[in-house]
Design a binder for these strands. Structure first.
Length: 513
RNA sequence: GCACCCUUCAUCUAGUUGGUUAGGAUGUUGCUCUUUCACAGCAAAAACAAGGGUUCGAAUCCCUUAGGGUGUACCA
C-alpha cells in the first residue's frame, strides 16, 4: 500500500505566524515536493474566542513571501477536500464523535466548570499531584458512565450543556513510531479523558485534527514538539475510529529556542535583542502597533528560508547555501535533529549577506526603491544600481544599504571629527582647494580617470596618498567607511563632488586647528 | 510534582555498521590584500554535560546523575 504523499500545515489563526511555524510549513513543503505529493494549508480555527483579525491573511501572505506555497487549501485555491477552514467543517466532526460514543470509546459529560474545578481542588487537597478528569475521577463525575441511562437521555433531550470526552484506558502502554525520535511510549494512566467535542458543538484540536487528517488523506503529520505529549491520544483516536491502517506517520520537530537564556523563542527576544520576529510586517489591528518583518527590513526570502531550514536540519556534506529546489532534493526527515535549536540571528545575517552578494544590482536597486522614494528622492535606476554594486558587499540586508550609504542620496549629516583631526591640518587647505579645482576641470569623470588625475596631482605636489585620500573620503562621506573613493566620486558626479568638497573643507576650518 | 523528549566548540551542525589529528559554517582574534570599511584568501583559539560500566578500542552501546525543553485546558 503506497499512498500519494499528502502533508498539511495546520496553524490556528490566533496570531501572526512565527519562525517556528514557518519552519514547520517549510519541512512539510519540502517533503511534499520531494515525494511529488500534496501540501495542504488547513486553518484550525475551532476556538472562536481566540480569533485574531488579520491572522489568517497574514499566514497566507507570509507563506507566499517565503515561497512556500501549498497547492491546496485556504488562500491557495482550495481543492478536493474543501472547505479547509475547520469552523466551516463543524458538521463533519459530529459523525466521528458519535461513532466513538456508539462503540464505547467516548462518553457524554455534563459537569459544569465549577464542578470540575471543585474536583481538582479536592484532589489537590488530598495530595494528588496532577488532578485531572481521567479513568479514576470520571467515576465520581456527572457523565453518561455514572448517570442512569434515562437521566442521560433526559439531559440530552432537554438541551443541557455537555461535552464529549474520550474514555482513556486506565493503564495501557501506547507505543508509537516517530520519524525523528524513533520509538516513543506513554502509559495511559498519565493521560486524561480529553474533551473531543466542546459544549458549543465545536471539536477540540484533537478530534478535528484526527478527523481532518483522515478525511484529507494525510500521510505524514509533521508538527512541533509541543504536540508530542498528545500524540498518544491521537493514536488511540485512530484506533478507536477503526482507521489505524491509514494513520499518518508522525514527525515531531524540535523547538526553536531563545538566542540566549532558557526557553523557546518569542517575539520579545526579537524586540530585546534587536531583530525582526515575523516574516513580513505585522500590524496589530487592535493596538495599531506594527512589528517590522524580515521582508521590510530588506532580507531576502531565499536567505530566510535557507536559514530556517538549517535550524534543526542538516543535509550533511557541509552544505549551507541552498536554493529551495536544492533543499527539496536533499531533505529527509531522518536528518532532522532531535534537540531544540537556538535562534542565531548572526547566522541569518551572514547568510543574507551571501544572498545579497549574489543578487543582481538592478534587482537589488528595485527592491530598495520604496525607501528611496520615501526619503523624498527621485529614483534614478542607473544611479541606484551602481550604488548597490558599491555598497552590497558591506551590508547584511537591503535596508542597511541606505543607512550605510545615505551620503549618496543626501548631504553628509555627521563627520568623523576624531579621524579628521588626525589626518588634516589647516595649512593644507590651499592644497585641497587646488585639488578641487583640478577635479572640477576633469572631463571624463570615470573612476579610472579620476584616479589617474588625482594620483597625478599627488605626485606632482610630492604628497603622500595617505594625506590626501582620507581627507577626500571624510569630505565626501563624513566617515572612513565605504567604497573606494574614486568609485564614490564617479557615482556622485563631478558637480556634487566639487560642491560637497567645498562645503566640507569650509566646515573643516571650524573643527581643526 | 508527574509524564515524555533532548544533551558534540559561544551558536547552527557533520560524525547514522564503535577505530577520525572529532570536520564545516557563523561569531571572535591574527595575518595578507588595501587610501578606509568591506570583500576575498590564509591562519588561530574553541566541543563530545558528569560519573560509572561493556570493549583491545566509545562522541558512537548500557546504567546513573545533572542540566535543558515540552506537556499536564471545553487553547491550539
Amino acid at each position: 500500500m503506497s499512498r500519494r504523499v499528502r502533508v498539511r500545515f495546520a496553524p490556528s489563526p490566533t496570531g501572526p505566524l512565527h519562525p517556528g511555524g514557518i519552519r514547520t510549513a517549510l519541512y512539510n513543503y519540502l517533503l511534499a515536493k520531494q515525494q511529488g505529493g500534496d501540501f495542504v494549508l488547513r486553518i484550525e480555527d475551532t476556538d472562536q474566542t481566540r480569533f485574531v483579525p488579520g491572522a489568517e491573511e497574514f499566514i497566507i501572505a507570509a507563506l507566499k513571501w517565503c515561497g512556500i506555497e501549498p497547492n491546496e487549501g485556504v488562500g491557495f485555491g482550495d481543492g478536493p477536500h474543501a472547505p479547509y477552514r475547520q469552523s466551516e467543517r463543524k458538521h463533519l466532526y459530529r459523525e466521528f464523535a458519535d461513532k466513538l460514543i456508539e462503540n464505547g470509546s467516548a462518553y457524554y459529560a455534563f459537569d459544569t466548570e465549577e464542578e470540575i474545578e471543585q474536583m481538582r481542588q479536592n484532589l489537590t487537597a488530598q495530595g494528588v499531584q496532577s488532578p485531572s478528569y481521567n479513568a479514576v475521577t470520571r467515576q465520581y463525575m456527572k457523565n453518561s458512565l455514572t448517570l442512569p441511562q434515562d437521566e442521560v437521555q433526559k439531559r440530552l433531550e432537554s438541551g443541557a450543556a455537555y461535552v464529549i470526552r474520550f474514555k482513556m484506558p486506565r493503564n495501557e502502554e501506547v507505543k508509537f513510531h516517530d520519524e525523528i525520535r524513533e520509538w516513543v511510549s506513554f502509559n495511559t494512566s498519565q493521560l486524561a479523558d480529553a474533551v473531543l467535542l466542546k459544549s458549543d458543538g465545536m471539536p477540540t484540536y484533537h478530534l478535528a485534527n484526527v478527523s481532518d487528517d483522515y478525511m484529507m488523506q494525510i500521510t505524514h503529520v509533521i508538527r512541533g514538539e509541543e504536540w508530542l505529549s498528545s500524540a498518544p491520544l491521537h493514536i488511540l483516536l485512530y484506533r478507536a475510529l477503526g482507521i489505524e491502517d491509514v494513520m499518518p506517520k508522525f514527525a515531531h520537530l524540535p523547538l526553536i529556542l531563545k538566542p540566549d537564556g532558557n526557553g523557546k523563542l518569542s517575539k520579545r527576544d526579537g524586540d530585546r535583542l534587536g531583530f525582526p520576529f515575523y516574516a513580513i510586517n505585522w500590524k496589530n489591528q487592535e493596538t495599531g502597533d506594527v512589528s517590522e518583518g524580515y521582508r521590510e527590513k530588506g532580507f531576502l526570502p531565499e536567505a530566510f528560508i535557507n536559514f530556517l531550514a538549517l535550524l534543526g536540519w542538516s543535509p550533511g556534506e557541509n552544505r549551507k547555501k541552498m536554493s529551495l529546489e536544492e533543499m527539496i532534493q536533499l531533505f529527509s526527515l531522518d536528518r532532522v535533529h532531535k534537540a531544540g535549536a537556538r535562534y542565531d540571528f548572526n547566522m541569518l545575517k551572514s547568510l543574507n549577506h551571501e544572498y545579497l552578494m549574489a543578487t543582481d544590482d538592478n534587482v537589488l536597486a528595485e527592491s530598495i526603491r520604496p525607501q528611496i522614494e520615501q526619503m523624498g528622492m527621485v529614483y534614478n535606476e542607473k544611479y541606484v544600481t551602481e550604488f548597490c554594486r558599491l555598497m552590497k558587499e558591506r551590508a547584511h540586508f537591503a535596508s542597511e544599504l541606505l543607512t550605510l550609504g545615505y551620503y549618496f542620496f543626501e548631504e553628509v549629516k555627521e563627520f568623523d571629527v576624531e579621524t579628521l583631526k588626525k589626518k588634516y591640518k589647516k595649512e593644507q587647505r590651499p592644497v585641497f582647494d587646488d585639488l578641487v579645482t583640478v577635479i572640477s576641470n576633469q572631463v571624463d569623470f570615470t573612476s579610472i580617470e579620476i584616479e589617474k588625475n588625482i594620483k597625478g596631482f599627488i605626485a606632482e605636489r610630492q604628497l603622500k596618498i595617505g594625506e590626501v585620500m582620507p581627507v577626500l573620503r571624510l569630505g565626501l562621506a563624513g566617515t572612513m567607511q565605504g567604497p573606494a573613493v574614486f568609485d564614490m566620486m564617479a557615482l556622485l558626479g563631478k558637480e556634487k563632488v566639487v560642491s560637497r568638497l567645498q562645503t566640507s573643507l569650509s566646515y573643516f576650518e571650524t573643527v581643526v586647528v
